[in-house]
Every structure is written in C-alpha cells, then in structure tokens.
Design a protein around this nucleic acid. Structure first.
Length: 784
DNA sequence: GAGTTTGAAACT
DNA sequence: CAGTTTCAAACTC
C-alpha cells in the first residue's frame, strides 16, 4: 500500500486539491439534518484519534441490517471501525497488543449498549472463507487496532520517522477505508469511522501473495453514528455517530458509450446530526448531483459494490479502471450505512455471484458530470450496481481515471430503521460530491505489474503488502477542497493535510488493476443543472500525443533511456506520461514506487513550473480549426517540422498558428509534406504488401507441411516429390543400371549409352509423375 | 552501435 | 521573457 505522508501531501500543489469543478455550496437543507460539509474552513482535519471514545465498535460482519442502527441510540463518543473484505480473501488482522475493542457482528447492538468490552484473540470469519485470524486484540481502552502485525515493525519505524503512529488505527472520528487487491484479486476493504485526525495505519506488508490494501483514512469527529452496511461476503461496517452520509440518487442509465465510471458518494460527517435526520443531497460547486426524488438513495455496502461490479471477477478484485482501459472497473468499497440487526455473525455467507445483498440493493449506473462554466470538468459515473459512494472521476486531459473514495456515514440510517432489504438512507437525497470539506487525495493509477512491494516511506500513514494501491487521505477542510482535476499530476498521492475536516474522500486513479475485469458501464447524461461541456468526455479520453485510447492501449510505450534526469523530469516520456518506468533502459531511475517521495516532489516541481505539464499536448483545436493541434505549438528551426523532432509532426498533425517554428513545411499545402505523406503511404503499402505476401507464403508452406508430413512419415506420398522414396530411388537406379548394362552388352558407344540411360531416367520420372498425379486425383476425389 | 542532430525542457 | 544549457529522442553513418 502506498501511503502519502502529510509532508508529501504538503508538497503537492494546491491545484490538485483545488478543482474548478467543485465549489462549496451551502447546505441544501440548512435546517434539517441535511448533509453538511465540514463546518469550518479552518477546522483542521483530524487524522489521528487521540481521544478514546466512550464506546468503540468494531464491526466485522458480512451482513448487517440497518435496523440495528435504528435501535441503536446515538452515542456521542462512540467510534466505529469498519472492516470489510471481499469474499474468499483471507484477512488476517492481528495486533500485537490489545488496542481495539472488537465487536464482531453485533455492531449496532453494541453501539446501543455502548459496550466497551474487549475481545482478544477473536477470530472472525466473514464468509466462512474469510477469517480474521487470532491473535488480534482489540481493546476499547486504547482505541487502536493494529492490522497485520507483520508490517507493524515497518510501520512503527515509519511512524517514528514522522512522529506519528503508523499501523495503528485510532478510532475516534477517523474513517478508514481499506481495500486490498491480492494477486488473487480479492479486495479487502477496511473502513473505520471515527472523528479523530489522521491515523497511521499499516495494513499488511505482505509478500506478493499477500493481499493488498487500499486504505483511506478520513478524519472525523469523535461523535459518530453507527452506520453498518453489510453485504455478501464482504464485511462492511461503518459506525459513527452524527455522521452524515452523502449519497447519489440512483438514476437510470442513459448512455453506455462512456467508459466505466463511478460516482463516489461523499460522506460527510456532520455534527449534531440527529439520528432521524435524513440525509439531503448536497451539491458542491460544479459537482452535479443526480437527484431523483422518486428514487430513494441508498447506501451500498462494500460487498454490494463488489458484487455488482465484480461479480464476474473470480478474484473479486478491486477494479480500478486503468487509464488506458476505460472499460476496466474501478471499485472502491465504502461502508454501508445500513446494518443488519439480525446479523450478528461474522460468518454469514454471501452470494456474491448474484450480487444479492440482503441489506441493500444495487444501484443502477449513474453518471454525473461535474464541470463549471468554462472551467475544468470531470465526469463521474455511477456504474450499475456500484455503490453510490464510489466515484470515479474522469479528468479531462488526464489519462488516469480517478476514483473517489468516500466514507459512507449516514445519520438517516440511524434514524430510519430499515430492514435487511432496504437501505437506511431511503430518504436521503443523493449528493455527488462532497462539499469539499476535505482535501482530496489523488492517487494515480499504476499498472499492476509496476506495483512492487514498497517499504514504508516516511510519513506513510497506511501501508499495505503491496503498493498497487495507494491510500487516499482526507485532507483539508471543506473550502479547500476544490480539486482541479485538470491539473492532476499523474501518480499524485496526497496525504492528509495536517489537521482537517472530518470529512474526507479520496480519489484513486484507476490504472492499478489492469487485469481487472472490464465491466460495461453506462454513462448517464449529465444533469441539466450542471451540463457537461461538450467535448469534455471526449477530451478526457483524448489520447496523449494524438493517439487514440486504443492506440495508447494497444501500443506499448517505448522504454525510455534516460541517464541523467532520473526519469523525474519531463525529458522522460514515462514520467511525462504519468507512468512509472517499466522495462526501460534508464539509469538511476527514480520514476518508481521506491522513490515515490522524489517522484512526488518532481511532480510538484513540474506542476509549479507548468500546471499543464501533465496534460496532453495534443488537444482540441479552436472552433473551425483542426480537430487536433498542439497545445503549445512547436518551435522547430531546422527540421522543417517534417521530422519526428517536431512534436506536431510526430503526432501526425499539422502545425498551427500557435507554432513558432521556422521554415515550417508541415502545413496542408506543403509539397514537401505531401511528398513525405505519399512516401509514407507508399512505404506503408509496401510494408502491408510484404506482410501479406509473407503471410500468404507462410500459410501455404504451413498448409503444405500439414498435408505432406503425415504422408512422408508413412513412407508414401501423394504429391510427386513425395513419391521419390527410397524404394523408388532404388528402383530407378536399378533401371538406370540395367539400361547401362544393356548398352554395355550391346557395345554401344558411350554417347549412346548415356542417351539410353538418360532416356530411361526420363521414363522413370514420367512414371513417378504419373503415379503422383494419379494419387493426387484419387485423394481429391476422396476428399470431395 | 556510435556519433550527430534536433528541439523540448530546464535553467539562468 | 529571452537566452542558454541540459537532456533524451530522432536521426545518420
């Protein structure tokens, strides 16, 4: 798991957090229990929980009902920890010390009773396949839980380096979302709801076989309401008092043309929210909220998300749609607001295949386009059956797909008892993007293959066995959250800013899991309120350097050969493209996970120098101009813009008015260009012809071999040359010798003898040929 | 494969 | 912002 320390986070430019697409909006329902963003701009986001909660609840259950929540009285100081896992993924949560009070199963009931019991050595099995193996001790006293003590040592060291407490979950007010992707593809999601500032966590520093965790810690307030969602095999429990859940109303899919996109429901932890308070939608800035009054919004548990989206995935991997593979699924687990009161067992089986969740239903795909007038936009789409609080963001100009992870907390769930099949947030209105109460952590998607286990880095809050996934940490207070997705640098990982709101959501680029299943997704029309500017989606998909997504996907990137730049400057194509170096020939490469600190600094430096640094250079031209043109134009002086030195020519586009090239020949009417194009076309034709000829020849040879091989092996032959067997040769030779003897006996001159022998040889050949022809004819007749 | 050319990126 | 340097890719031999 990749964790970004606050220090690193501070290095990142504000543009990342400041998006034009998100603006703060006043609570839509000021008087009610409407979802509220972090009340204070200056309020730091609590990332660590130092204050013990009166009652803590750790819920690890595969299924739960919201009814429990309804029964559970709000506890002002209760902290909750939610751990959800994908099925079939063994999760071992073990702590070296009793730090957390674990209440498997009966979360709500515990909440109601404010139980402070501690469990030690508890084994929790979520689905029968999953088991939280002892020993792990959770004690309410410390309000801490250590996950994967294997990695604890590293985390501790990392913590020391940063003065924090890595690996330790402190519950109060913090929300933790952990998702893991093991090689087997099973996601593990851990969600902790609480109110305290950022907490360091370490999730299994496993080897390659170990599951990977994606952890999102969101600072929250100490007062939390329980939100327990469970589904299927995955355990999803979210408890917290006075947490507000922001959800996106389900909406009928409108379009299917867009790549898979998810809308992440942002959960806002509101203070003083009464249990009965219904969650109201909150639209922030340009974030579009899909409000469907007729359709009650619901909270979907993690398992639901997995079920709906990943049901065909054997490994139940967390799919994060890779940039180059828009169709890939990005799944982020979020705790469900509902809990199943009846569900007190951690081992409840879940039918993942069907995606059925007793507690909640799968939502249809919802697409939300966030974009302001003239500003950058990003579109979020809720995939069918995806959890509403999973949001994928499509950033124009960015090759990455980002998924926003939002903790799901709802006050409504508490106030509205709901049965297993209903969501506690039925009355809640959808909210797409939070008010921006928290800074957004953005993690670039990375190819899985590049995800090598990474040791804990300084400031790491959460570590996982593998670095395929990175943590997204909540960050700054609400007003600061206006991420400018258009400037998102690739590979950006943001750590929680020092202090921050209790609301957090994370953006996770989706390239991590390239092997994930490609799930069809539906793109919904954006709301009229926030119409998506034309071309937004197109631009978002615009390939780098003019290459189409298909091209970029199919065509492997050329390995770089950097020697001096450490692959941390834009000289390096890998870095410039927001990719890690992989199979490159570079020396002293820092463009990898092992040097993430340096990489982040480099990214920030580049963005400071040029906010557009990581945007595709080839973009849409102005109205009436060519569809594609270089964003900055070239500056060629000697190449005539007819060599690949020229970025325009390299992108197979003509120079435009913004180019400052000298002696440009890369324009429409340029004879040189036409000549080059013709030559290129001719060369291409030749290549195609040669390829076709080779293919045809190969096919013929292959066919011939296939037809003749068995015959040859059998010693016979149907084709003429196959008749020249050893026996035939011997017979022929005997005929020739016989003819020679005859000539000798008759005292024929040498010339005449040679003639007689050659004549006999001709007769032999004729007989062979005739035999072959006859055999071929027979074969053909048989085949017919 | 080594050396040269080129222009973007980085630096001053 | 302009000039210079650095850098890695493109190109040539």
């Amino acid at each position: 798991m990749d964790v970004v320390s606050p220090e690193l986070n501070s290095l990142l430019p504000d543009e990342i957090m400041d998006t034009e697409a998100i603006e703060d909006l006043p609570p839509s329902q000021p008087g009610g229990g409407a979802v509220q963003s972090q009340p204070s701009d200056d309020t730091p986001v609590p990332m660590e929980t130092d204050t013990p909660a009166a009652s803590e609840h750790l819920s690890l259950c595969s299924d739960a009902t919201s009814a429990e929540h309804a029964k559970a009285p709000p506890t002002s100081s209760g902290a909750t920890l939610s751990i959800s896992t994908a099925s079939q993924l063994p999760i071992s949560i073990s702590s070296t010390s009793s730090l957390l009070t674990l209440k498997p199963a009966m979360v709500t009931s515990l909440a109601a009773t404010k139980t402070t019991d501690s469990l030690s050595g508890t084994s929790i099995s979520t689905t029968g396949l999953q088991r939280l193996t002892p020993p792990f001790t959770i004690s309410a006293a410390n309000h801490q839980i250590i996950l994967n003590k294997v990695a604890s040592a590293q985390a501790t060291e990392a913590a020391k380096s940063i003065g924090s407490q890595p690996q330790v979950f402190k519950q109060e007010g913090q929300k933790l979302l952990v998702t893991t992707i093991g090689k087997s593809g099973q996601p593990i999601m851990l969600q902790v709801a609480g109110g305290k500032p950022g907490v360091s966590q370490t999730l299994g520093d496993h080897k390659s076989q170990a599951p990977q965790f994606k952890v999102v810690t969101i600072g929250g307030r100490s007062e939390l309401k329980q939100v327990v969602g469970s589904a299927g095999n995955q355990l999803t429990t979210l408890q917290g008092q006075q947490l507000k859940a922001v959800q996106i109303a389900t909406k009928t899919p409108v379009s299917s043309a867009a790549p898979i996109k998810y809308i992440i429901t942002k959960t806002v932890n509101s203070k003083g929210l009464s249990p009965q308070t219904s969650v109201s939608p909150v639209i922030t800035g340009r974030v579009l909220t899909q409000t469907s009054p007729g359709i009650p919004s619901r909270t979907i548990t993690l398992s639901e998300t997995l079920n709906s989206n990943m049901q065909s995935i054997s490994g139940k991997k967390i799919a994060i749609s890779p940039l180059k593979s828009p169709s890939k699924v990005t799944v982020v687990s979020v705790a469900s607001p509902t809990s199943n009161a009846t569900q007190k067992s951690m081992t409840l089986p879940v039918n993942l295949a069907t995606g059925q969740n007793t507690a909640q239903n799968i939502k249809p795909v919802q697409s939300v386009t966030m974009g302001g007038v003239g500003g950058s936009q990003f579109k979020t789409i809720i995939p069918l059956g995806s959890q509403p609080n999973v949001q994928q963001i499509q950033v124009p100009g960015s090759r990455f797909h980002y998924v926003r992870l939002v903790t799901s907390t709802t006050a409504s769930s508490l106030g509205h008892p709901s049965g297993p099949s209903t969501s506690s947030l039925q009355t809640a209105k959808p909210m797409v993007v939070g008010t921006g109460a928290a800074r957004m952590s953005v993690v670039p998607a990375q190819p899985v293959k590049q995800m090598a286990p990474k040791p804990l880095t300084s400031g790491a809050v959460v570590t996982t066995a593998q670095t395929q996934q990175r943590l997204i940490m909540p960050a700054t207070p609400l007003p600061q959250i206006q991420p400018n997705f258009t400037n998102l640098p690739p590979g950006t990982v943001l750590a929680p800013a020092p202090g921050g709101g209790n609301v957090g959501y994370a953006v996770v680029p989706a390239q991590y899991v390239t092997q994930l299943q490609q799930t069809p997704f539906v793109t919904l029309a954006s709301s009229s309120t926030f119409p998506a500017p034309a071309g937004v989606q197109t631009q978002a998909r615009l390939p780098l350097n003019g290459l189409s997504p298909a091209e970029t996907t199919s065509r492997p990137r050329k390995p770089c050969n950097c020697t001096k730049s450490q692959c941390l400057k834009l000289y390096c194509d890998c870095f410039a493209n927001g990719e890690f170096c992989n199979n490159c020939n570079c020396n002293n490469c820092f463009n990898n996970l092992e040097h993430e600190t340096e990489r982040l600094k480099a990214i920030k430096t580049c963005l400071d120098r040029n906010p557009e640094a990581f945007k595709p250079k080839i973009g849409k031209g102005k109205q009436g101009e060519s569809d594609r043109r270089h964003s900055k134009g070239c500056n060629c002086k000697r190449s005539g813009c007819l060599k690949n030195y020229c970025e325009c020519y390299e992108a197979k586009i003509m120079c435009s008015s913004i180019c400052k090239c000298i002696g440009c020949k890369n324009f429409e009417e340029s004879p040189e260009r036409k000549t080059l194009m013709h030559l290129a076309d001719a060369a291409e034709v030749r290549v195609q012809q040669q390829t076709a000829a080779k293919t045809k020849l190969s096919s013929q040879i292959s066919d011939l071999l296939m037809r003749t091989t068995p015959v040859i092996s059998s010693g016979g032959g149907r084709l003429p040359y196959t008749f020249v067997t050893k026996e035939v040769l011997e017979a022929t030779c005997e005929c020739l010798l016989e003819q020679a003897k005859k000539a000798e006996q008759t005292h024929q001159p040498q010339v005449e003898a040679e003639r007689m022998i050659l004549e006999e040889f001709g007769h032999c050949l004729m007989r062979i040929i005739n035999s072959a022809g006859k055999a071929k004819a027979d074969c053909a007749s048989i085949n017919c």
